[in-house]
């Protein structure tokens, strides 16, 4: 029937039709039926992206959203065999090509990043670590939950509905996200620059409470005083209760 058509070429044409929606001379198919492949493939990709980025999808007009998804799926070679990771490729793709969508509004890349990291943290493999919930002389160093991300934002994408964020909100915001070890949920903690720096130190190296407070104060040219010490211990106590800090290690 089609003696001179190479199988590889036909498969490529079918695949590229599914990716772009444009038929580049695929023969020996039923035209009326072919469209269903594009529809099914695209819907699957679109709904995976929508469920990874519900806030971004909600914020953008449907037209802008669909254009981004359409361009992405046509141009990008999706590498992961696991579809849950594909939305991470979407974010990388937008960032690398500096897609006009990201210029749409200044905070969009922050919103996308927060949404993706939530998915990634929720799904990522468990990181085993040893610690005790009791502090003693041998085990006095705090251990931060390794399943966390610390983010610095210019806009409060974790605090406000995207539609309500304005230029006046521009500032410095710090967000800690971590996966709760017992129920697997992602906990969001908005922190000050001081505690962000403190958790960054702890993330670099396990250390005891006094050293940690001292080091953080040095960053900000502060003398440790009772007030700072009290506030820091409060913060650390709260972080232990939410399991952002898991406990003590040696």
């Amino acid at each position: 029937m089609h003696p001179d058509i190479q199988t590889h070429k036909i498969q490529s044409r079918l695949a590229s039709f599914c990716r772009s929606g444009e038929n580049s001379g695929l023969k020996g198919v039923s035209k009326g039926r072919l469209k269903h492949y594009r529809r099914l493939v695209f819907n699957n990709v679109n709904s995976s992206l929508k469920s990874a980025y519900p806030l971004t999808h909600n914020f953008l007009s449907e037209e802008k959203w669909l254009k981004a998804v359409t361009d992405f799926f046509r141009e990008h070679v999706c590498e992961s065999p696991q579809i849950w990771q594909m939305p991470g490729e979407f974010l990388n793709w937008l960032t690398e090509k500096d897609d006009p969508l990201l210029k749409e509004c200044e905070f969009l890349s922050e919103l996308l990043l927060m949404e993706w990291l939530e998915v990634e943290l929720f799904m990522m493999e468990d990181i085993e670590c040893e610690y005790s919930t009791q502090q003693n002389a041998q085990r006095d160093k705090l251990l931060i939950n390794p399943e966390h991300r610390l983010l610095a934002f210019n806009y409060p994408v974790h605090l406000k509905n995207a539609a309500e964020i304005t230029e006046a909100d521009k500032g410095n915001y710090y967000l800690l996200m971590h996966r709760h070890p017992s129920n697997g949920s992602i906990v969001f903690t908005d922190v000050s620059v001081f505690f962000a720096a403190m958790m960054q130190h702890l993330s670099n190296e396990n250390q005891n409470i006094n050293n940690l407070i001292q080091k953080t104060c040095t960053d900000f040219n502060l003398q440790v005083n009772d007030e700072i010490f009290k506030k820091s211990k409060e913060f650390i106590g709260k972080a232990i209760s939410t399991q952002l800090i898991l406990g003590f290690t040696n």
Partner: peptide, 25 residues
């Protein structure tokens, strides 16, 4: 079926052409 082409995953099942070449590969 195939769900990847030119190393791009499509996350769906596409029909393989019923050809001798395909039988082989």
């Amino acid at each position: 079926s195939f769900s990847k082409c030119e190393n791009a995953h499509l996350y769906d099942l596409l029909p393989i052409p019923f050809t001798e070449q395909a039988v082989k590969h």
